[in-house]
Design a protein around this nucleic acid. Structure first.
Lengths: 148, 148
DNA sequence: TATTGTTATACTCTATAACTATA
DNA sequence: TATAGTTATAGAGTATAACAATA
């Protein structure tokens, strides 16, 4: 494990990461979906149909919040509730074809935005980012784990 | 400028950055300040007293939002309004000593959280992150600029 | 009894529109 | 008339508490 952490690194990373997220978020498609909604759709796309409780947990929200979120997605034809055949208390949330197409399209356009920004960096900077990507993933995992 | 962007890099970075932000955000001090409030305090700490309109612009919110945010900060003794001596329509927002101490303390604790996670990575990973930090800063700047 | 989900209610954050006071 | 800020109002997102149906 690392021992000599450069003194400013934690502060710099926290600052840049926060700003990057806000910049990315500002590129969220206006007039289409909120960040909350697109996050839920992406979770459903990546992990398949799931029960309300699992969706709430993955999105780090409480059940009533998930209920009202799914209400909106259902109203807009992006997701649907079905009864769970194994447990009549439960519902299973799944994407509609329209929901699947929309979130895939949004992802493509967001990736294109980041690619366009990357193209304005130097080749060395892009290489540094590619080198650091796995460390970013692990850093995130550590933060999540230290959390719970 | 870079030309050959690795195909998965944009997608990976977007994903890790989003998750990292959410993980960092979850470490926000509970029962103390919301993300919105601490962001405003940090802006006031970094840039000194400013008028309501400037605070709104820096926080990327509209004026009524800034007004109610400052209402809360004032109510809690973290900031204060003063008349602008040069323009009797305007107010100047400044931190109180209590607000300054609180935001400095929050920053220190957030940095400590990130440092603790960094210490669990390998030395090579920490080096890769330190190497990539300037590129993260520039990537953010490009995204902001492409935006406006 | 315990669990799954919904309903009721409330607070924060955000916005637009209308207003007041001053420039 | 234009600008700085506030007030009025509304909608999204979040929470806790209380409830219904089922396990």
């Amino acid at each position: 494990m690392a021992e000599n952490i450069p003194p400013e690194l934690a502060s710099d990373l926290r600052h840049y990461l926060t700003r990057l997220y806000l910049a990315l978020r500002r590129h969220s498609p206006i007039n289409e979906l909120s960040a909350t909604q697109s996050s839920a759709l992406a979770t459903l796309l990546d992990h398949g149909p799931m029960r309300m409780g699992e969706l709430a947990e993955r999105e780090c929200v409480r059940m009533p919040t998930a209920t009202s979120l799914v209400d909106v997605l259902t109203r807009d034809g992006l997701a649907e509730r079905r009864p769970d055949p194994d447990d009549r208390r439960a519902v299973v949330i799944s994407l509609t074809d329209q929901g699947r197409a929309l979130i895939a399209d949004i992802r493509d356009r967001r990736d294109a935005t980041v690619t366009a920004a990357l193209e304005q960096l130097t080749a060395a900077q892009v290489a540094a980012l590619a080198e650091a990507a796995p460390a970013l993933r692990d850093l995130q995992a550590r933060l999540e784990n230290n959390d719970r």
